[in-house]
Amino acid sequence: MGVMSIAERSTSSDPLVHIEHFGMSFGRTEVIEDLSFEIGRGETFGFLGSNGSGKTTTIRALLGIYQPTRGVLLIDGRVFSPDNGDRLGYLPEERGLYQKESVVDVMTYFGRLKGLGHAPARKWSLAYLERVGIADKATARIDKLSQGQQQKVQLGVTIMNDPELLILDEPTKGFDPVNRRLLMEIIEDQKRAGATVMMVTHQMEEVERLCDRILLLKDGTARAYGTVDEVRAEFGGTRIRVDTDDAVPPSDAYEIVSTEQGRTELEVGNDADTSVILASLVSAGLAVRSFTPTLKSLDDIFIEIYGADAKGVE
């Protein structure tokens, strides 16, 4: 059977990434217990978890760097091989480039390895550098660039040759807010162009902005998996901020999460009627200055799931 690239097989309606009962152990340490999920074509997928939860291990196993202890990991219906990965873009967590070479030479080299001709690879590289504002660094050695500039070059190498599948492991790590926004725009461009994106990040606002579906990995299993709204619904409920100097009485209708001077936070179930709760507080004689119900954020859910594990999260 001939080798087909990801792009050649992309007309299929099957999911682009398929992981089923994946398990991974290093010696006696079990990193991934039993993990299954899929990523559809054109989808942006947030792969979330605290540090050490096994996200990078899963990606490395998916990309053939690790051999899985058990389970099936497929990209476009087959085990990944660099031979058919011309249109994979991978930005690893541990990343770097040839430090002593010029920016354009390194980018052209990776473009050539991904199947581009020399001239198109060089032309694309120069256009990209222009877009991200470092065209004047094209002939500079990589080690003469700032960390942020190097990150831009790495992202450029990742998205060369219009990747159909982009795997980004903490893409905004080390970026300032301005460049983070630029990077988000580039990822959105790729998404609009039809790329499937698998993204590891600890920035929940990025997840809420970009991701169609998410998976939260904990202790080697999927703790939550679905669309952002589905995960919110599963773990969420509503938070109510009550500004009052009076003590909020306990009730089966809500749970008191925190009490500070002049402010109490309540948590209620998804089905709760907040107007009834407000009425009960007022009828109990509390002087309520404001009553603000909000959906629980992904940040809150993340902290709820990982608890102490998440302390190390950026």
Binding site: I65, Y90, P92, E94, L97, Y98, F110, L113
Partner: peptide, 9 residues
């Protein structure tokens, strides 16, 4: 740290 990028290419 070039290895991972190059080993997937």
């Amino acid at each position: 740290r070039v290895t991972e990028m190059i080993l997937t290419t």
